[in-house]
Simulated assay, not measured.
Amino acid sequence: MVKLAAIDLGTVSSRLLCATMRDGAIVESRKHTVITDLGEGVDARGVFSAAAIERVMDACREFVDETRSYGASRVCTTLTSAARDVSNGDALLEQLGDLGLEPQVIPGEVEARLTFYGVAHDFPGERIAVADSGGGSTEIVVGTYAPSSEGDAFALECARSLDIGCRRVTERFFSALPPRGEELDAAVAWMRPQFDAYWRALDERPDRLIAVGGTVTSLVAMVHELTVYDSRFVHLRDLTISQVENAIAKMRAMGIEEIAALPGIQAKRAPVILAGAVVMRELMRSGGYDRLTVSENSLLAGSAATMCEAMAGEAPVIGWTPTLSAL
């Protein structure tokens, strides 16, 4: 039994997972998500704003306190799309170091592998496609995870990170909310060929598409009008393309305050959820999927499993070794 913590600082959300692990599997966990909008303005300016850095640091101070209270022996801290796009990333990394963290800006393919590893434990032996659509990028990976007493088998066929995310689409294409029809059309025309190229590169499309991230979990909450978010209800819930299209049709005529008032939508996610829904619809359309399965597991669960492997002196299954800190 070992207690670990994984922190992921994304384009829209900063997230913490505190987990108790046994033999590489999570047996108990706590999650904390704060919408910090680290990627605000990054697509246009290529730098973190001082306000965005401070929002993330405020969240991380809370995360450090929670990690210590939980008794985690090691912490892994990762940064993804927004941090890959900026020229002033050191301004944030240095402050994170002052908290005792050892942050790593991970490549998109590593992000995809970690997410797949976190999700695939629920689908042992099944060839699946896993998509993680965030604020700045969408990671897609196809593969199979087959655990056995002789050692886990982990086979990936196509791991890609595309610079398509809800924050990037909103800032690049929408002048305001609700967006004009031609702005939505332009966003679709930009993202669709990139998704088409991904699916064409596969010899055979998997039957099952799994999606993670705040967009799809929020869409489930919206579709089912969850006034109080219930992760147990959302986890492994199917989301059909018609449900996604209906959500888009409802939101595309609304302003931010109207979207924020919808059941299941966090107020801070309201400015980007429409773009996120359009991204997911185009991903599904391009791949020929009429439904997907939503997973509450993600990069954080993959990080925790990879941390266990590294601490045991094993070669991590995904081929990436995390840098760990002790608080």
Rank of each mutant, 00 (worst) to 15 (best):
A260T: 11
A261V: 05
A261Y: 03
A261H: 09
L262M: 13
P263A: 11
P263G: 15
P263I: 14
G264P: 11
G264R: 10
G264E: 13
G264C: 12
G264S: 10
G264T: 13
I265L: 00
Q266D: 14
Q266M: 12
A267M: 05
A267W: 06
A267D: 04
A267Y: 05
K268A: 14
R269P: 03
R269L: 05
R269F: 08
R269T: 11
P271M: 10
V272N: 00
I273A: 06
L274E: 00
L274H: 04
L274G: 01
L274P: 02
A275H: 11
G276V: 12
G276C: 10
A277E: 02
V278Y: 01
V279E: 01
V279R: 07
R281W: 04
R281V: 06
E282T: 15
E282F: 05
M284I: 14
M284W: 04
M284N: 08
M284H: 12
R285M: 03
R285N: 03
R285K: 15
G287T: 09
G287S: 01
G288H: 03
G288C: 02
Y289K: 06
R291E: 12
R291S: 15
R291G: 04
L292Q: 06
L292P: 04
L292E: 01
T293R: 13
E296H: 08
S298M: 02
S298E: 04
L299P: 13
L299N: 08
L299E: 07
L300P: 06
L300C: 08
A301S: 14
